[in-house]
Write a protein that binds this DNA or RNA. Sequence first.
DNA 1: AAGTGTCCCAACCGCATCTGC
DNA 2: GGCAGATGCGGTTGGGACACT
Length: 522
Amino acid sequence: MSMTSESEDRMVPKGAIGSPSIEETSGGGNFGVNGPLKKGPWTSAEDAILVEYVTKHGEGNWNAVQKHSGLARCGKSCRLRWANHLRPDLKKGAFTPEEERRIIELHAKMGNKWARMAAELPGRTDNEIKNYWNTRIKRRQRAGLPIYPPDICLQALSESKQSENLSSFSSVETQHPDLLPINSFEIPAVEFKNLELNHQLYPSPLLDVPGRGLLDIPASSLLAQGLHSSYGGKTLLSAVHPTKRLRQSESLFPGLATSFTGAFTNCSKYHNDGSAQSLQSFGITSAYDQNLTSDNHSTSCVLPGSHALLNGNPSSSEPSWAMKLELPSLQTQIGSWGSPSSPLPSLESVDTLIQSPPTEHTQSGSLSPRNSGLLDAVLYESQSLKNFKSSSCQHMSSVSMAQGEVMDNSLQDLHEAEWEAYGDPISPRGHSAASVLSEYTPISRSSMDELQSLENTPGGKVKQEAEEMVPTQFCGNDDAFNSNNMIFSRPDFLLASNCFGPKGEYGKEQLHAERCSWGTSW
DNA sequence: AAGTGTCCCAACCGCATCTGC
DNA sequence: GGCAGATGCGGTTGGGACACT
């Protein structure tokens, strides 16, 4: 039947489709008027029945399909089949580069709102987009590549700023479904009291904020939060608030979790109000607090928004700590934390860092320039550009300054602090536990191996992807390579990109390939 | 050629929301 | 307002296809 999708043609010979065994065994206790409801792949005959029914009666009332057409499928299944495969306006085939870019843009704005994204992409279904995103993310995660290209970061930032201008803080929640009223839900204190980061690099209770994965948070809302300095720790909790679904929380990334931990700590200090206490009452004890200076922690409220977007760590359903556990201990190889040649600390080091009271650097390090995702990338880059123009650096200390001020100064401090931390060749404490953990997030051993093996695996998919996406703006010449786009000189970029091998021998080619991963196809 | 791992995608599941009574 | 059914949404899973060893 012409309406049948390509996949349907494939599906039919998969065997067992429509076979008695399926009919008999997959009813699962669901019975329709015509007997047990069937599950599993659809047959062409079933499609034909469904198409005929919808043509005659229109969409909707899906349960009636089963009743009136004799189709042994539940209404839900019929709706899904129609929506995803039989609708005449569906676009078949691979996503075009334009569509891919649009998806990335939309995801940066919306997070995992597949249906909304699908609405913006005519002919595409939410399932399609979701599948595409998940596979793409997995791939990039493995490759240790960031997910969002710089221009989209900037775009998201500008849009966020626009929305900031348009709305007061009090109205944000009404503008974005992901921003919900403060205190609209309570996080059980017991969950936070159970937080033991020093023993678990696993999904912390903090991450297990009921209702939402952090990674589901649209970048725009997070950016907004970051820009709205008035968002305190409490509000941040609200930001990950559960509009729905307790079940989503498992997809969180520990790296982000720890970033959040630091963020909460910092933000609570930042506001110097009840937030800190409330956080501590959750069991998030902040050793950092003791050593914090206002000029440092002021930066950190920017971080919490770092979304999901932890570069390379989107809202994938794939837990990343599994990969983290495979990480090699590079500390001994490198002997320095901040140097580009020492991208990753050992897990033991992480523990130590978590347990140890941080130095001043620690605080700043809590906003690691690395792996913190879209927001960080945007903020960092903008700050880098800013600082690039101005050689003067000023420490600002203002807890109660206006939002705009907070933003700028925070960035300033952030930038300084980051480079201090990274520039410190000796002290592992240049990184807070939060940053250390967050820095772990995108790079797994496998991803490192993968990257290192890029040169050796000509047919590798990762390499293929990198090659496919050669950015014209970055790959043209060495001058551009050397001088432009500071993002590529960011420590986080270099580290995340595994630009330097254990011996620091990372070749220009490889770095180039990394840069090229921000391809034109975005 | 066989075994293994990964990719990809259709479909399912559970929950949230909407709608009508 | 409460309830039940319908619908929508997002996460997850199962399995074939494909690539690699």
